[in-house]
Simulated assay, not measured.
Amino acid sequence: MELCLLFQKKTWYQFIIERVKRLVIPLVFGVLVIVPPQVYYEEYIEQSSFFKVLPEIVLQNKVNHLWFIEQLFVLSLLFIPIILLMNSNKRFLVYNFMSNWSQRFEIFSWVVILIILRVFSKFYFPSNSNSLTNLSTLLFYAFFFFSGIVIAKNQNIWLLLQKNRRKNLFLAFISTVVFYVYYFIPTDVISPFLSLQHRWNLWYIVCCLVSWGVIISILGYSSVYLNNKSKVLSKLNEAVYPFYILHQTVIIIFGYYIINNDLTLIIKLILLLISSFFTIGVIYIFFIKPFKLIRFLFGMKNR
């Protein structure tokens, strides 16, 4: 959604420069600095010291949880023609079509497109890898990317999201129940009736229903209750990106030491939640937020 607003103020060239600053710089910084500690704790901690194996880890060029930034940058470039279209007068053709469809069949029905994309792409690219070469994953997120572009400036769809937020939440809840029922059904119960491919297709369908249902529910409720200017919301929004970049590394480091303690699972989870959240918060407040260079490396805007 942010992209449509950016294109109103920038040329496509300026847009690409902005995407490089906000996405590529944090990605490169993350691969060189943020990801190596988690790779060390996952694979090397019992073999050698961190700094001794650091060059080897860096050369692996692993993105780990930062795959999302990598895909977001690629999608941003691929969708430039669509964003330009949505900022032109021709956007009303798309807006009217999607608005009429949503009024007639509900916004939840968009999930049909997602299901078709998911099932057919998974047939040719069954891997769960988040690599850019795995088109089943790229197309899955491309659907949400495109949906955000369509929804961003379409007031009719926003009104429908608000109006049907309770219905969408109910559908998301039902989809989630079906998701967990299907997840916990023993394989030998359904295998006599469905082939492996059909079972996977059902899984993809259920996952699509949950994903889309949850997202449109959040959008509907957020547009009602979080649509006012708020200093707190503004500060939290600014902190989201650094928290995302840091979270997996911090969780893995704390998790490594917490998991080996003789404590109950629930205590371990609570300790991990508190320690990781507190640590990320301290890093953000004292070592990222105040400094211009560090903010730049984490993809944050100037203060």
Results as ranks from 00 to 15, higher is better:
residue 2 E to A: 12
residue 4 C to E: 10
residue 7 F to R: 12
residue 9 K to A: 12
residue 16 I to V: 15
residue 28 V to L: 12
residue 29 F to C: 04
residue 33 V to L: 02
residue 33 V to Q: 05
residue 40 Y to F: 13
residue 41 Y to W: 12
residue 42 E to P: 02
residue 44 Y to L: 07
residue 46 E to Q: 12
residue 47 Q to M: 06
residue 47 Q to T: 03
residue 53 V to D: 04
residue 59 L to D: 00
residue 59 L to I: 03
residue 60 Q to C: 01
residue 67 W to G: 04
residue 68 F to C: 09
residue 79 F to T: 12
residue 85 L to T: 04
residue 87 N to S: 05
residue 89 N to D: 13
residue 90 K to L: 13
residue 99 S to W: 04
residue 99 S to T: 15
residue 105 F to A: 04
residue 108 F to I: 07
residue 110 W to R: 00
residue 112 V to M: 10
residue 115 I to F: 03
residue 118 R to G: 10
residue 118 R to N: 12
residue 123 F to L: 14
residue 124 Y to T: 12
residue 129 S to F: 10
residue 134 N to D: 01
residue 144 F to M: 00
residue 148 G to L: 06
residue 150 V to G: 02
residue 150 V to R: 03
residue 152 A to Y: 03
residue 154 N to W: 08
residue 158 W to N: 01
residue 161 L to P: 03
residue 164 N to C: 03
residue 165 R to F: 02
residue 166 R to Y: 12
residue 166 R to C: 02
residue 166 R to K: 11
residue 171 L to N: 01
residue 174 I to A: 11
residue 175 S to M: 06
residue 176 T to A: 11
residue 179 F to C: 09
residue 179 F to I: 01
residue 181 V to N: 02
residue 183 Y to K: 15
residue 188 D to V: 03
residue 189 V to Q: 04
residue 198 H to E: 15
residue 198 H to G: 07
residue 198 H to L: 15
residue 202 L to M: 15
residue 204 Y to T: 05
residue 208 C to W: 08
residue 209 L to E: 07
residue 209 L to F: 14
residue 213 G to W: 03
residue 214 V to E: 08
residue 215 I to T: 13
residue 219 L to Y: 10
residue 220 G to H: 08
residue 237 N to H: 11
residue 240 V to N: 12
residue 242 P to L: 09
residue 245 I to G: 02
residue 252 I to D: 06
residue 252 I to Y: 08
residue 253 I to W: 06
residue 253 I to L: 11
residue 254 F to K: 07
residue 258 I to P: 05
residue 258 I to E: 01
residue 258 I to Y: 08
residue 265 L to E: 12
residue 266 I to D: 12
residue 274 I to R: 01
residue 275 S to M: 14
residue 276 S to Q: 09
residue 277 F to E: 00
residue 279 T to A: 14
residue 279 T to R: 06
residue 281 G to C: 11
residue 284 Y to V: 08
residue 298 F to N: 03
residue 300 M to E: 13
residue 301 K to Y: 00
residue 303 R to S: 15
